[in-house]
Design a protein around this nucleic acid. Structure first.
Length: 212
DNA sequence: CACCAGGCAAGTA
DNA sequence: TACTTGCATGGT
């Protein structure tokens, strides 16, 4: 399975090129985006992030201080804004109180310990935690999301249960543990899904992988 | 008008 | 353990 997955990776890389994910300039931006994009299109999240940046709020201490109602207005476009205000505050509070507002200090922890810490924060589930670990903190963790699920369902590679832990284990047990590979692979799956064949289709009939 | 988008937690059985 | 529901905006 490793060779098959690596072959697919090569084809996707050849087809779409390096994706340079996550689309965020700083680790904090990635963390904020990971929360805001929960069940929400990235387009709507971009507006919220732009609003936070232009008002100087994209900073751990500024986010820690800002009133909930103000923060909610800035992230309005990303939907569920009251819920997401609370979720952002929850993770910002932890970074502020337990890591001196320093993303670098966060990064200096082991992957397992960090994952447990993140999952303990209300509003941070497996996908959000893993997105933060991989894309913001550069830990070798494979992210499972709606795209990854669609990819697995559409290519006859996988017949296990469609549960997060099982799908993640499928990739992580098959591939070498490498941050670059996990980052690029997930981003390429998204590119594939957004390009054509898997867009809303349960099965892939015409795509770069049709002969794989 | 209906449906969807890079989830999560709380409630129910 | 395995469903179901609320949360909300913006695009198609």
């Amino acid at each position: 399975m490793r060779q098959r997955l690596l072959k697919i990776f090569d084809i996707l890389l050849e087809t779409f090129g390096e994706r340079h994910w996550w689309p965020g300039e700083t680790a904090l931006e990635v963390i904020v985006g990971a929360v805001l994009t929960q069940n929400t299109s990235w387009k709507n999240v971009e507006k919220a992030i732009a609003s936070l940046k232009s008002s100087g709020l994209m900073d751990v201490d500024r986010l820690y201080e800002v009133e909930d109602a103000i923060l909610a207005q800035h992230i309005r476009s990303s939907g569920y804004y009251n819920l997401k205000t609370a979720r952002l505050k929850n993770i910002i509070n932890v970074i502020h109180d337990e890591y001196g507002s320093s993303i670098e200090q966060l990064r200096n922890n082991g992957t397992n310990k960090l994952r447990e810490k993140l999952l303990g924060i209300k509003g941070i589930g497996e996908e959000t935690a893993d997105s933060i670990l991989l894309y913001a903190l550069e830990k070798p963790v494979f992210v499972i999301d709606a795209y990854t699920k669609r990819f697995l369902a559409g290519h006859g590679l996988y017949d296990g249960p469609y549960r997060y832990a099982d799908m993640q284990a499928f990739f992580m047990d098959s591939l070498p543990s490498d941050t670059y590979l996990f980052n690029e692979y997930h981003a390429l799956i998204v590119a594939l899904c957004q390009s054509h064949c898997l867009k809303r289709a349960p099965r892939c009939t015409d795509c770069p992988l049709k002969n794989q």
